[in-house]
Design a binder for these strands. Structure first.
Lengths: 168, 168
DNA sequence: ACCCGATCGTCCGAATTGGACGGTCTCCAC
DNA sequence: GTGGAGACCGTCCAATTCGGACGATCGGGT
């Protein structure tokens, strides 16, 4: 396809009314909905205990993104007056809708598998050896997962199944 | 700004003289070794046809990294005089050694699986539906892979198996 | 010779990263 | 109680990384 340099922006029918969500924003909204109001620090822990397993988020992002979402009205803020002056974020109805919309039609690309181990194999490491060193790590993860599943089941049989499904 | 704010906890005997390689650098070195000398543009194509499937590299990096590697003596440069004045890079013995060293003891962490689809399932999408839309994409990839395998086998039965192995 | 689309190289603004740093809080020894 | 010590928690910033705009060059068709 002879794609021209394409300098100019959309002369299209309309600008971009649809608020697209970045993956990190989806995570923030989703975690707020699943676990209720939270401070950035709380979010950090929630991420570590859930999506962090396959999608890490630098903690500084968990301090800046919620503010950005607040400007869009997708979350609301409440700030402590004294002490640490921390902010607590809650998802708004608008936020829930935006999240639902994203979930209803997520990006259709198939992501990446950024595993150093794969790189190593690709460039000549002994696959068996790599597998051997990777194995304990995966086993550790697996143990974690099983704990999560147990905990999840005990907690609430009627809860959304998504989080557990992603474990496989 | 007084002293270097370096964290330092290795009070250990030695600093870090070992040249560590970033993943991108590994890719550049590896591709140079596999396919011989190349210009950044060549590298771009090689990436697209191989590791790019699970580890994308923005093309601007393929223009800057080789230069950095050249400063370290891991690759050598030769520049066209006329015309596009393009640079052709070749891996040096030092580069080969550095690569071998990295391959011998790659980072031991287990990477990430940054798939938007997983996120969607996690936060409530219908897994079946997601699977349905993902399927054709994976099938397309699969077809590509099979072609690669066929091509690879035809080309050179004695060639390094790594690249094909990563396909699974 | 000139043009046109495809190929190729460089640059730069914007977004991400990860960590340093400093301010709070909790809890234990006294 | 009270004074730390060490764990929490929030903010800031330098350094990459990212991706795309933009120009320059090529090849081949007329």
């Amino acid at each position: 396809m002879p794609a021209p340099p394409v300098g100019v922006q959309g002369a299209g029918a309309d600008a971009r009314p649809v608020e697209t969500l970045s993956p990190v924003q989806v995570i923030v909204l989703g975690l707020l909905r699943l676990g209720g109001p939270a401070t950035p620090y709380d979010l950090k822990q929630r991420v570590a205990g859930s999506v962090g397993n396959f999608w890490s988020v630098p903690h500084s992002q968990l301090y800046s993104e919620p503010d950005r979402l607040a400007e869009r009205g997708l979350v609301s803020v409440e700030r402590e007056l004294g002490g640490r002056r921390r902010k607590s974020f809650s998802i708004t109805d608008a936020g829930r809708q935006a999240l639902d919309r994203w979930v209803a039609s997520p990006p259709t690309d198939l992501g990446e598998l950024r595993t150093p181990a794969l790189l190593a194999v690709f460039f000549g490491s002994d696959p068996v050896e790599i597998a051997a060193t990777q194995l304990p790590l995966h086993e550790a993860k697996l143990a974690e997962y099983e704990q999560l599943i147990a905990a999840g089941r005990a907690a609430d049989p009627g809860a959304p199944a998504g989080p557990l499904l992603t474990i496989h």
